[in-house]
């Protein structure tokens, strides 16, 4: 590898003992704590934790010996990383060109109106996040939405609203029952 090998690392596990950190440690170990693996490690952190916290960035910075400002710079550069936890349910609206010409914006508008929030936000009760994606690559099925990981194609604003309301209401009811 042309990448420079630097001074041996002082590797120490995260003091919290949180198991998710163990998983992150495995990723870093796989990359031999190379500075160049920063992006891969961040992706893994996003996957494991669901979002990137300050604590997490500091941990990665110290483990990979990458300057903190660089870690912050990289994390804020890529769209993949979110800095707040997502809602219980999330709906990704594809706004790729194909979806756009087939009316993805109307789906976004409808959901925004329904939940009274902008795209990219999470409802105050943490129940639902509305996310915009550049293209999920299922252009043949435009317009496409991804609700809780499930892809739905050839959608209409009404149908999406209905779907989302269903899952959110169900969760709310479950919560209410648990509380009771």
């Amino acid at each position: 590898m042309a990448a420079k090998k630097k001074v041996t690392k002082q590797v120490k596990a995260h003091p919290s003992g949180d198991e998710r950190y163990t998983s992150l440690d495995r990723t870093m170990k796989r990359f031999k704590y190379e500075k160049d693996s920063l992006l891969e490690v961040l992706i893994s952190a996003q996957e494991v934790f669901g979002y990137i916290s300050e604590d997490l960035l500091m941990y990665i910075s110290s483990q990979l010996k990458v300057p903190m400002s660089q870690v912050y710079g990289v994390a804020t550069f890529y769209h993949l990383f979110t800095f707040e936890p997502l809602g219980e349910h999330n709906c990704i609206i594809c706004t790729g060109t194909a979806c756009h010409v087939k009316g993805a914006d109307r789906i976004v508008d409808a959901l925004s109106e329904e939940f009274g929030m902008e795209a990219g936000e999470t409802t105050a009760d943490g129940m639902f996040s509305l996310i915009i994606a550049r293209c999920v690559g299922s252009c043949g099925l435009a317009p496409v939405v991804v609700l809780d990981g499930q892809v739905h194609g050839k959608e209409t604003p009404e149908a999406v609203n209905k779907r989302v309301l269903e899952v959110v209401t169900r969760s709310k009811e479950e919560l209410a029952m648990e509380a009771a």
């Binding site: 160049d36 990289v74 890529y78």
Partner: peptide, 26 residues
């Protein structure tokens, strides 16, 4: 395999290289 983290500009060669190196894809 290296995974891209969502930056259109990384289609540009030099940005892509920076990204593979774990940097900002500029």
């Amino acid at each position: 395999v290296r995974i891209g983290a969502g930056a259109f500009v990384c289609g540009e060669e030099t940005a892509l290289i920076h990204s593979v190196e774990g940097k900002r894809g500029m």
